[in-house]
């Protein structure tokens, strides 16, 4: 049995250069392909053309009309639910309360039959239309859970 001479063991030098090269290549790749994606979400609406929607079955639930009036600057001037003007500092909160009382979501999943038509002025800034859609379609409870109110929302046809 041969016993190695431990006195003359070779000193092994680990080559770090290739590893560092690759690591930096990876780092550069990830840095260049990195893009910040903001969290976005959708409101899904099904809006067939007027002729197609007329041929579909009419519902017995009356159509609710929300009118959004704009000032010349595009800011919100007035919110109206049917013939009722919702005045005050937070008209969309009032709109939400009105829709909630009409739909009566106490314990239910909201209304699948009720349809709301939004008639907005052309110049109105889009964020107000989005606020109206948010007020109509649902709300978040204290636990952050989403509850639906009205699922069928559409825009009124533009005046010719």
């Amino acid at each position: 049995m041969r016993i190695r001479n431990t006195e003359h063991r070779e000193h092994i030098v680990l080559q770090m250069t290739p590893m560092i090269d690759i690591v930096f290549q990876l780092l550069v790749f990830f840095v260049f392909t990195f893009k910040i994606i903001l969290p976005e979400g959708d409101f899904n609406i099904r809006m067939p053309s007027a002729s197609a929607s007329l041929s579909s079955q009419p519902t017995e639930t009356p159509l609710l009309k929300v009118r959004l009036r704009a000032a010349p600057s595009g800011e919100l001037a007035q919110v109206q639910l049917g013939d009722v003007v919702l005045a005050g500092a937070a008209p969309f909160a009032k709109l939400h309360q009105e829709i909630r009382s009409l739909v009566d979501d106490a314990g239910g999943p909201g209304s699948t039959e009720q349809e709301v038509e939004i008639e907005a002025d052309y110049e109105l800034k889009y964020r107000y239309a989005m606020h109206a859609i948010t007020a109509i379609t649902g709300y978040l409870d204290d636990n952050g859970e989403q509850h639906k109110l009205v699922e069928r929302v559409r825009f009124a046809p533009l005046p010719q």
């Binding site: 903001l38 969290p39 976005e40 979400g41 409101f43 609406i45 053309s49």
Partner: peptide, 16 residues
């Protein structure tokens, strides 16, 4: 026929 109106997710109440 199908549309998705895209918005930015927000944690605070935007309606009020």
């Amino acid at each position: 026929e199908k549309f998705a109106l895209r918005g930015k997710q927000e944690k605070v109440n935007t309606v009020g």
